[in-house]
Amino acid sequence: MGTKSSTWTSRVSALFLKDFKSELRTRYSLNALVMFAVITLTVVSFSIGMFSLSSKIKSSLFWIVIFFSAMSGLAQVFIKEEEAKTSTLLKLVASPESIFAGKLLYNLVLLLFLEIVIVPLFVIMLGFSILNFWLFLCVLVLGSLGLVCATTIIAAIVAKASVKGALFAVLSFPILLPLLVTVISGTNLASEGASFSQGLRDLQILFSYAVVMFVASFLLFDFVWEE
């Protein structure tokens, strides 16, 4: 038998790397995420045309694109395990905690990759100016963390449902509403060049939201994952 040396983190990284490798070969989520984001962005850009929009509206549009792109891709992390019938195998070999942490990490990396694609496109296509870049970056990272914590546990719930369809977006919307309101406000402040201290309130809310969602999801996952 092989030596027993793995720590909890190496088990989580094994789960993450498995999903990452699998994604590179199947493009199960990545294509859906990127295509949805680019198409939405193009449609928004064309529909606005020559109109000049306020930074508040641009911030809202930015997060609408992120939200719906996330809805189209992040749920797949558990749905593909159920559809490929590999969830039984996972249950046999890994603890619910390490599975959740691995899937959460994978979704976070996927979302951050999506944002790396969307942000420059949004800036170019909609003339979105970011006057306080570091505040924007903090809002983006904390917002993504909260978004991923909430959507990963919802993805696990939806994967068990017989009718998956629109359930993910329907369940996610009320849970993500406070997060969306705050990220839009924070992004607007960063866009207008507000100082870090002016955006601190939004950052505190985003941080608290991410912590609460992470702890709640972590505790709930065991009940969702097991029969």
């Binding site: 070969r25 590999t86 039984t88 195998l89």
Partner: peptide, 27 residues
């Protein structure tokens, strides 16, 4: 027979993953 392995991974990758996630270290 109901148990499914990861089709998109190679046999070696499947075994490496299933060992690592159980805390086993195989070369």
């Amino acid at each position: 027979p109901d148990l499914s392995l990861y089709d998109e991974l190679t046999a070696l990758e499947n075994l490496e993953f299933l060992a690592k996630v159980q805390g086993l270290d195989f070369k």
